[in-house]
């Protein structure tokens, strides 16, 4: 069965790009446009990995990661966050919140796939 990736981004174009790339590589994709929606989607779906933006309206990425990590269902689910700058402070915060890895925007589809394979497997 294909693995399900939850992608969280307020930018529809990024969501689409990520979604298309992952689907073409054989993953199932669940999309959410902010942290709150992501929590709902994560509760409603079995999720194998999460890719989330940090800077979002409503519930931002950091709050989402913290909140999600309080749920037992998040056990063992890798979370990769997207960030536009390689801001070490932010990276440390996100990791402390429970993120598994990160990806620097902008990224190319193959970089995305490499990271997803790395944390979630093929």
């Amino acid at each position: 069965m294909s693995k399900t990736i939850l992608t969280v981004d307020d930018s529809a174009s990024v969501r689409q790009m990520v979604g298309m790339t992952l689907k073409q590589a054989g993953y199932s994709v669940v999309e959410a446009s902010d942290g709150r929606e992501a929590l709902e989607k994560a509760a409603a779906n079995h999720v194998d990995a999460v890719i989330t933006d940090l800077n979002m309206p409503g519930m931002d990425g950091l709050s989402f990661i913290r909140e999600y990590r309080t749920k037992p269902s998040s056990n063992g689910v890798p979370i990769v966050f997207l960030t536009t700058e390689s801001d070490d402070g932010l990276k440390a915060q996100a990791k402390a919140a429970g993120a598994t890895g990160w990806m620097i925007k902008p990224f190319k589809p193959d970089q995305l796939l490499a990271i997803v394979r790395k944390v979630a497997g093929a």
Partner: peptide, 23 residues
Amino acid sequence: GLAFRALHTLKGSGAMFGFTAVS
């Protein structure tokens, strides 16, 4: 915050879709 977020998202997705000058 709203204006900043709009800029931020625009920059991020712009770079991703090859709109380098915009970004």
